[in-house]
């Protein structure tokens, strides 16, 4: 179980959950819905991080909501990531159509601005369309130490505490991930733990509870010798919003607290005239990582 710190949205979410737990007599039933098919949208999603890797992007085509297949890859695109004079071409992976990655490993640099450019003929009209997205790579947090203690929340929870310092930027946005023996515990979109220090009174982290391990959950049971890794990604506000919107829209909204459904905001821009009818979704971002590990004894 992850713990987000100090975003009022999370405070609200907790209260909503509390109210839902108490107040609703809700029952669930599957229902057959017919919706018209929407025009396929171009979907571009990817990132570059401070890890030295062959970073890449996925290019796919959206499908009907109730289709049952995998996302349809889009092949034949020409893509690159630029930063100043530095250009990394992305090539389509032969074993994974629609996945375009760097040919040689590289690491994103803190403070740089990265631009993704993608050219392709998505609608098959013989004309090439070009898309672009820009992202700044924010500085990482400094993680000094990590500890595990029994939690006061529940006798079944172990609490992960972290020490360190957040970047000196006015407001930082983070996503957090937790590994147990190199297995990512929050690997789904809903598991993405988003946070911000907008309302913190200090940049110093002094034993901040960051994650809870539920000892009644098989995948989270701790044994002596287990390696625990906490990873904190410094992300842009726009990417934080994108993931938050994606979580919210994929989960669905309750009438009391949710707003009307809306498509995710994207930073992928078409360089075609505005008359272009191709819809675009997805996101390209750059982020830095900080990690800290310990062995459980």
């Amino acid at each position: 179980m992850e713990l987000q710190f100090l975003i009022p949205r999370r405070l609200l979410a907790g209260v909503c959950a509390l109210v839902t737990f108490f107040g609703l007599w809700g029952c669930e039933e599957r229902i057959r819905i017919h919706t018209d098919a929407s025009s396929p949208r171009l979907v571009i999603y990817g990132y570059i991080t401070t890890d030295t890797l062959c970073h890449g992007i996925w290019i796919t085509r959206s499908s009907d909501y109730f289709s049952t297949g995998k996302p349809q890859p889009v092949s034949g695109a020409v893509a690159c990531i630029r930063s100043g004079e530095e250009i990394h071409s992305l090539s389509e992976n032969a074993s994974g159509p629609g996945y375009y990655r760097m040919e040689t490993p590289a690491a994103g640099r803190v403070g740089e601005t990265y631009t993704l450019e993608v050219s392709l003929d998505f609608d098959g009209d013989g004309e090439t369309e070009t898309y672009q997205a820009v992202s700044f790579l924010p500085p990482p947090a400094r993680l000094d130490s990590i500890a595990l203690v029994p939690s006061l929340l529940s006798e079944y929870f172990m609490e992960t505490l972290i020490w360190g310092r957040l970047p000196d930027e006015e407001i930082n946005y983070f996503s957090m991930h937790f590994y147990l023996n190199d297995t990512l515990l929050n690997d789904s979109l809903q598991g993405f733990s988003l946070s911000s220090d907008e309302f913190l009174n200090s940049k110093e982290l002094r034993g901040l509870p960051a994650f809870y391990l539920n000892q009644r959950r098989k995948s989270e049971v701790l044994l002596a010798g287990d390696r625990i890794t906490f990873q904190m990604e410094s992300i842009t506000r726009e990417y934080s919003d994108f993931i938050s919107q994606a979580q919210s829209e994929s989960r669905g909204a309750m009438p009391l607290f949710g707003g009307p459904p809306a498509n995710l905001e994207t930073n992928i821009r078409s360089l075609q005239p505005s008359s272009s009818q191709i819809g675009v979704s997805g996101f390209f971002t750059a982020y830095s990582k900080a990690r800290i590990s310990m062995i459980y004894r």
Partner: peptide, 20 residues
């Protein structure tokens, strides 16, 4: 507003919506 399409982000499907 119902979803009329979908795409994948981080192994989860995200809806593409109809008009409001």
């Amino acid at each position: 507003t119902y979803p009329t399409g979908r795409f994948q982000i981080e192994d989860s499907y995200v809806p593409v919506y109809s008009g409001r």
